[in-house]
Design a protein around this nucleic acid. Structure first.
Ligand SMILES: [Mn+2]
Ligand SMILES: [Mn+2]
Ligand SMILES: [Mn+2]
Ligand SMILES: [Mn+2]
Lengths: 220, 220
DNA sequence: TTCTTTTTTTAGGTTTACCTAAAAATATTT
DNA sequence: AAATATTTTTAGGTAAACCTAAAAAAAGAA
């Protein structure tokens, strides 16, 4: 596999993530994701097309080629292994690992990453509960569901919060919920769609419908 | 401390190392060290002078300012901590660590490096025996002498190898010499400046002039 | 000292990855 | 269907970090 620039890698990874939801990715979506301008995205799409990492016809949106997908998975593997290292070995807290891994992921030595994987004991998920692709780029596809759709007494891990406001973070902090928190729904109430949730062996507590809609989990 | 580009950091570090020997560094020396062209060096020297990292008057050579020295020491700290990590935790061999550390050293999170240092148990030297600057940029200057200057029958410990090639590593491994090895020179031969060396109570063996010049020891 | 060689700088060009503004294509309303 | 709005691309420009070739300065020899 060839080596790609930091910028190319960031684009490839962003397309990979966006196409999980949309199938095909648009110029504006990607510009927004990468905090860049649509014109810059078009420039890069032309380049990645020439490198055969991308299917792209002008005005038609784009998606990764199978080669592009392979590249994306190695970058995601690096990112998540470093996140695991930072959290597990260096005792970073869950919200600090991403920013640093965003840089470490671009150090492209295959040997480094495979040895790191071994050193860490071949972890299967990162500190946010997202699966780590293996040496061959194989990744467990676990689908995220909103907490509202989680059946009672099914252990799950929080993997995504769709609202980024100070208000929801404040509430989540108060309820001791963060990305990576393992929890179970104990009971659902039809009257207001609120639910009782339990984290580990702590006492159960209530979550409103509005909050539950914004918390996404993976069944473990 | 501000953040500098990968390129700026590579220049700063190279100047630091070159000025240990020369005091003042020239354009050609630096171009040669960084495998770049003299015109590129001049461009960068102007930039680093504006940023006050460098003392530089055209045609007069250059040396780092005290701020430049501080920056150099943090880059060297990162480099050597990563080398230690690679060797000690990921079981990289001696000659493989440098190339990877050359990239890892540019990830500039202070917290990352200080936590890594702690995780590694605050190592004092890297796998080549070079001292690791502490959090404040303080670096030990231990008086090391080349094996060529070690008097006969003086017990000493190997603390540094100045050549980092695979070839010297191969030879050192064959002779069972590594950083920390305790040895004594038993006899020196004026004809070819070779010497007989003994490790502990093992039988003495021969070391060539070329090898002895690259092995640095501290008298114990 | 004057000539010659070497070193260093300047001038001008390239590539990558950005940008803004305008044009073109596509999508949405009326 | 035509008008309007939005999205995307093109055109042209900038800054960083390189480059080559030529000019200028410094160093070394005659
Ligand atoms: Mn990144
Ligand atoms: Mn993650
Ligand atoms: Mn480097
Ligand atoms: Mn080293």
């Amino acid at each position: 596999m060839l080596n790609y620039s930091t910028s190319e890698e960031n684009y490839i990874k962003a397309i990979f993530h966006l196409q999980q939801e949309d199938g095909t990715v648009t110029t504006n979506e990607l510009a927004n994701e990468l905090k860049t301008k649509p014109a810059s995205v078009t420039d890069m799409m032309k380049k990645l097309k020439v490198k055969k990492l991308l299917h792209y016809q002008p005005y038609q949106g784009f998606r990764l080629s199978s080669e592009g997908n392979k590249v994306a998975l190695t970058i995601i593997r690096r990112h998540r292994l470093w996140e695991y290292f930072l959290a597990e070995k260096l005792k970073f807290s869950w919200d600090e690992v991403h920013a640093v891994a965003e840089h470490l992921e671009h150090v492209s030595s295959k040997k480094l990453i495979d040895k790191l994987d071994e050193f860490l004991g071949f972890p299967r998920t990162d500190p946010h509960g997202d699966p780590i692709p293996d040496m061959n780029g194989k990744i467990e596809t676990s689908k995220q569901i909103p907490l509202t759709e989680l059946a009672a007494n099914k252990p799950a891990v929080v993997c995504h919060v769709s609202d980024q406001s100070t208000e929801i973070l404040d509430l989540l902090r108060h309820k001791n919920i963060s990305i990576g928190t393992k929890l179970e729904v104990k009971k659902k109430f039809d009257f207001d769609d609120s639910m009782e949730v339990r984290i580990g062996r702590h006492p159960a507590f209530t979550i409103s419908k509005q909050l539950a809609e914004n918390i996404f989990v993976q069944i473990t």
